[in-house]
Design a protein around this nucleic acid. Structure first.
Lengths: 332, 332
DNA sequence: TTGTATGCGTTATCAT
DNA sequence: ATGATAACGCATACAA
């Protein structure tokens, strides 16, 4: 009808209502305008079913009200939950979220960041693994779980305290000789503080401990070998295990059962992250719970704070312990 | 340096290189240009660290290379996996993905769609529950798991065949009297065909069956009541259960164990979806696997097909069965 | 208070 | 082949 067949523009509305372009703009943005004009414009808007073109708006304002979230994927429940909460926190502030799955690919990470800098987004929240990421100074960036220099704030849970808490819990639950099992990135990052935290806790509580430390890419079955090596005729020489993630904890619990050991009666296992089955059900295992909602809020808050004199370089949020069936507690 | 402190524009590059604006545009877009010019422009680009502003591009082209994915959340592993695969499929075609979590909120669903129509995205893929969604004809939309009229293609797995397959599997595994347990949306949607498929399969294979059908919002413990009612002195009167989702299957397996029944020795349980632990590990239970990757590809393909004479209204993709510990098979 | 004109950064259509 | 210029849709400072 109007022009070709394309979507109506402000100009169309102005013409339809018989007013000037600027007047339409004011009505759309809620600026004061004569009552009779407003009505005419609103009717025209309804009649043409007009919607503002936010790309034009954003070009004008050079502001997109969109943030990008860089995470490896959404299949892993920890990342999935993180994405969910960050999405919510952004939405609450009127921001949209571009999901960027990097699949742990460092090149992909850089590509996404480059893209983001082409004015696509107002800021980036990233859980990344590329040690050489190039981030423009004018692109607001908040890092999760990894420090990236003093100019970029890093948000994480208190991993050190979490490790410590795990040791204390195992001690409280009667363990004497425990082990720490770890697999993960060889990069320097916050989760790597779980180990020293755990060691610290063991020392403080008089627990003896051993460690099996693997890096991403190492074969998982080394854990099985490690555990088998510590089986004596009395059973496993450990009575407690702290695994660096819930995923590993569940994997290890499976191994133990196959080896004829009972969890938690013979060996108690604590994981890390606070993973729930199907996202909202029971905890997958006894675990140190990350405050995902707080982490998400903090990331978004830091990202959108325009005029903060200086953003803190590292923020550690408190963790808690939750029973999930692989320790001896009673479920409340 | 250049102007204020803002990001450099094409004009800046043109000035720096001493060429015209149009020439820069051509270089950026790989159009033929004199070799000496190209070099000068490229040097200027590098020097100023110029990046094209995609918002301006998109305003010009009225094309955003962005699609929106509407799903309830990313915490549920099925939705999370779906998001992951759709993200990948879009990325492969040069499209970005706006993640829109609706939390099953119908108002939120409509809001997202309205937003999407403000030229924010080129199309929408939605797994929605609002029966009254208003979608403009000019907004490409692909629905997952729910038919929304002949103009909007719907992609789903073959739910009917999945139900049938579950019945056949239970029959193959020696079951005689089985039950179907279901909780979900009361809306008409594709997953609701799991039940008739299952019934059909039971009849074909001579299985007797009962059903317990709940809707979202109903209390879960009705399942427990139902199961308890069917416990005789010989144990449960069923030897096989088909649950409408893996989530329910795992929940039910937990109940059964608490009731002193062994899974799979006493009762075999089959779920639906193909949920894997931690996104990539073992299957959470024996299950009918949805071909998520194919579903994602199909959605994206249908969404981006510009000039398809007529898009098919419903596409059902084949499912498969996978062992996951709650049936009697041997893991291969 | 309303209308007009300019610019946001790009692309594309012109002459040159 | 290259350079100038209009247009994309909107917001806003300024003129009426």
């Amino acid at each position: 009808m109007k022009k070709e067949n394309s979507v109506p523009t402000m100009k169309d509305v102005a013409q339809e209502a018989g007013v000037a372009l600027g007047t339409v703009s004011k009505v759309v943005n809620g600026l004061p305008v004569g009552e009779s004009y407003r009505i005419r414009v609103e009717e025209a808007i309804k009649k043409l079913n007009y919607q503002v073109n936010s790309y034009a708006q954003e070009l004008k304002a050079s502001k997109t009200f969109t943030a990008a979230l860089l995470i490896p994927n959404t299949k892993n429940p920890f990342f999935a939950s993180l994405a969910y909460h960050i999405n919510l926190a952004l939405l609450k502030r009127g921001y949209r979220m571009l999901l960027c799955c990097t699949d742990f690919n460092q090149g992909q990470e850089q590509e996404y960041i480059t893209m983001a800098q082409q004015n696509k987004v107002d800021g980036i929240i990233g859980l990344t693994y590329n040690p050489d990421l190039i981030i423009e100074d004018n692109t607001p960036f908040v890092s999760i779980d990894r420090s990236m220099g003093s100019k970029i704030p890093c948000v994480a849970c208190d991993n050190f305290a979490g490790g410590q808490l795990a040791a204390e819990k195992l001690a409280d639950l009667g363990c004497k000789h425990v082990a720490f099992l770890r697999i993960g990135s060889s990069l320097t990052n916050e989760p790597n503080k779980r180990r020293p935290g755990f060691e610290n806790g063991c020392l403080a509580r008089g627990l003896t401990y051993e460690m099996k430390i693997l890096n991403d890419g190492d074969p998982y079955d080394e854990f099985e070998t490690f555990l088998k090596e510590h089986i004596t005729q009395d059973g496993l020489s450990f009575d407690g295990l702290f695994c660096v993630t819930d995923q590993l904890a569940c994997y290890v619990a499976g191994i133990l059962q196959r080896l004829g050991l009972r969890v938690p009666e013979d060996v108690q296992v604590i994981g890390f992250d606070g993973t729930r089955m199907f996202g909202d059900g029971a905890y997958a295992c006894s675990t140190i719970v990350q405050p995902l909602e707080d982490i998400a809020e903090m990331c978004v808050e830091l990202l959108l704070q325009e005029n903060m004199t200086q953003k803190p370089p590292l923020i550690c949020l408190p963790v808690s312990y939750a029973y999930g069936g692989t320790t001896m507690e009673r479920k409340e």
